[in-house]
Computed example of a mutant assay.
Amino acid sequence: MQLAGPGVMGPPADRDAALAVLREAVGLGITHIDTAAAYGPRVTNELIREALHPYPGTLHVVTKVGATRDERGGWPPAREPDQLRRAVEENLETLGLDTLDLVHLRLGDAQGPRPGSLARAFETLAELRRQGLIRHLGVSNATAEQVTEAQAIAPVVSVQNLYNLAHRHDDELIDRLAAENVAYIPFFPLGGFSPLQSEALSAVAARLDATPMAVALAWLLRRSPNILLIPGTSSVRHLRENVAGAGLPLSDEDLADLDTIGGRARRR
């Protein structure tokens, strides 16, 4: 998301730096890159293709459909069957693929999930999966009820929702999905456009001689075995810091202090 221009619109200020981030990610062993044709729009997908195509067999380029961009930089929904088909075709074209590894259906809006049936939209993606254009399906920005509804239509391998140290509303859903062997992919794992800020986070980071962002990423990986991380960056330096931070060891004391940030301590 951060590889496009300001507001996730237009080209990056430094195209070479954006390409370098993608190549360094794969070089560091990253096997999961999250994108969407709406980023730019098309810009991020085209950067991924330029930097990494032909893709290594171990790399999964994961995309999403269900929203487009308007002239003001907004994210209006685009979940009608013809819109979803066009979005899948656009992702295939811009990424240079014949089949998309994993497609998330983006629901809700910029303020978060919204209740309501996803059946018509998800059935469209399930049909595209049967046609061989998509291997696996997931949902994004979804309620727990929508996840259940999607699972009744077609296999769901992942859920991508807002979740981090300070936003813990999906705790029960994460535990449920872990028991079902379904991946959970927190977007904005470092707080989003406003970075995570907390006295407890800063205190643990100081104790470990680490950055608060490294601690936040390490906490997410300790939170549940089904969590996959997608922290965004346009900097090779920050990318390396994120990768190193993900391996940071956290003690029981650290975890207890961090669990207070979201207002709910958890027994481990």
Rank of each mutant, 00 (worst) to 15 (best):
L3F: 09
A4L: 08
G7K: 09
V8I: 13
P11M: 07
D14A: 13
R15V: 14
R15G: 04
D16G: 13
A17M: 08
A17R: 13
E24M: 07
E24S: 14
L28E: 15
I30P: 03
A36I: 06
A38R: 11
Y39K: 10
P41C: 09
E50S: 14
E50N: 12
H53G: 00
H53D: 04
G57P: 10
G66A: 04
A67M: 11
R72W: 07
G73V: 10
G74D: 04
G74T: 08
W75G: 02
P76K: 09
E80M: 11
P81H: 11
D82P: 00
E90L: 13
N91K: 01
E93G: 07
E93T: 14
G96M: 12
D98Y: 03
D101K: 08
H104G: 01
L107A: 11
Q111I: 00
A119T: 15
E127G: 05
E127K: 13
R129W: 05
I134C: 02
L137Q: 02
G138K: 01
G138L: 03
V139G: 02
N141Y: 07
T143E: 07
A144F: 06
V147A: 10
T148L: 12
E149L: 09
A150R: 04
I153Y: 08
I153E: 01
A154V: 08
S158Y: 11
V159S: 02
L162Y: 14
L165F: 01
E172L: 14
A179C: 06
N181K: 13
V182E: 04
A183H: 13
P186S: 12
F187W: 15
P189W: 04
Q197T: 13
A200T: 03
A200W: 00
L201T: 02
A203F: 05
A203K: 14
V204S: 01
A206E: 15
L208R: 15
A210E: 08
P212F: 02
A216V: 07
W219C: 01
L220I: 02
L221V: 12
L221S: 06
L228P: 00
L229A: 04
R237N: 07
E241V: 05
L248K: 06
L248R: 00
S251K: 03
D252E: 15
E253H: 13
D254R: 01
D257N: 00
T260P: 04
G262K: 04
G262F: 05
A265L: 15
R267A: 13
R268F: 11
